[in-house]
Design a protein around this nucleic acid. Structure first.
Lengths: 210, 210
DNA sequence: TAGATTGTTAATCGATTAACAATC
DNA sequence: TAGATTGTTAATCGATTAACAATC
């Protein structure tokens, strides 16, 4: 299979959402120019991206079979077998993540939550148990947790990352706006709202100048 | 001022968080290699990035003054005068965003929420009023709202984006995993959790292969 | 002074875009 | 057939990394 870049990986879920909506609208095939126009990408980029995941070639004049393309992207993104995850830090954000309905659609299954607050431990959010962070090691093994979603306060982020790594977690989805230092064998992916907002703000103030 | 790329913009909030923590630890100056090492960037990249925002040159052997650097980054990112925003769609995610304490730190002030559900309209979240989406035009003017934070269900996303644009909003921070089509004069910035998770998942499955 | 760090200029790398023959 | 779309190969663009003289 061809090499894939992070930029491309980011685009596949976007293609998938669009393709699902087009299938719902009754389309059977779809071409790169049509996708490009709908999503504001270039058609060359769409063609290259789809070549990475497609099991069959597209057909000149027709494009690709939508169903096949949807299956190819889902397979490529591992959407079929759910990855078990836990939310660490059950504050406002952590609760919202535990309640979010969309995660199953992209192969993520939030099994439980962890918090340090003894008032929360033993309760449930969206029907999912909240355990103590001191139970991390045990529960990770017992429940087969693969990924931790970190949503603790800033000051507790690195400590909890260390705790997770010690407990055997290899993947951390970090919602805390701070750089985590972990070993090479652990993968971190950050959702940094401050970074995203900086781009929005900058684009807006550039507009105003014109 | 030098040209700045989106990649660089994303890094400035990360630098800022780190610099604040180093200032708290008592440091007065800091060099690019030290920053690079702490944040897992290359030192050349750090040097180039800081040159974009710094009002003064760094000093060989010493580096830069931390306080000055912090002020420069804050000014560059417009962190000083708060941008007024509203959350549109007060579900689990919308509520969490309205409760999130960190936005003020990066120049964002969530003034109120909007929802279509008449059971929510008139209530408050974190002391902030929830208005009907039918009041958007009026309230945007009345309250001086500049940015909309979109957190509605997928099926309602494009309609609400259109509504916001019609009501005069020029910047949309989109938390819905869908591509929004708007005119050239409107800026959209997406927080796409599916895209972010795709990268995490892919890195993890690559690790497993080794 | 010696040397760590700087800013600038050049080289490399990777991703996007363009060009174009092949084909359903 | 004609032409829209494909896949491949080459060119361009932009960002990162490397090299190096300047300097506190």
């Amino acid at each position: 299979m061809k090499q894939v870049s992070e930029r491309q990986l980011e685009r596949f879920p976007i293609y998938l959402k669009y393709l699902l909506s087009m299938r719902d609208s009754g389309y059977k095939t779809i071409s790169s120019p049509v996708i490009a126009n709908a999503l504001s990408f270039s058609e060359e980029q769409v063609r290259k991206d789809l070549q990475v995941v497609s099991s069959n070639n597209g057909k000149p004049k027709l494009g690709r079979d939508i169903n096949e393309l949807i299956e190819d992207i889902k397979a490529f993104l591992h959407y079929d077998n759910l990855t078990k995850a836990a939310v660490v830090g059950v504050g406002h954000l952590g609760k919202a993540l535990m309640n979010y309905k969309g995660f199953n659609d992209f192969g993520l299954d939030i099994v439980c939550g962890f918090d340090i607050d003894s008032n929360l431990v033993g309760s449930q959010v969206n029907g999912k148990d909240i355990y103590s962070v001191y139970q991390l090691s045990n529960k990770i093994d017992e429940l087969g947790l693969e990924i931790a979603i970190l949503a603790v306060p800033l000051s507790a982020a690195q400590d909890n990352a260390d705790r997770l790594v010690n407990a055997g977690i290899k993947g951390i989805w970090n919602f805390v706006p701070v750089h985590l230092n972990v070993g090479d064998d652990v993968v971190i992916e950050n959702i940094n709202m401050a970074s995203s907002f900086a781009i929005l703000q900058h684009k807006l103030s550039n507009k105003e100048k014109n």
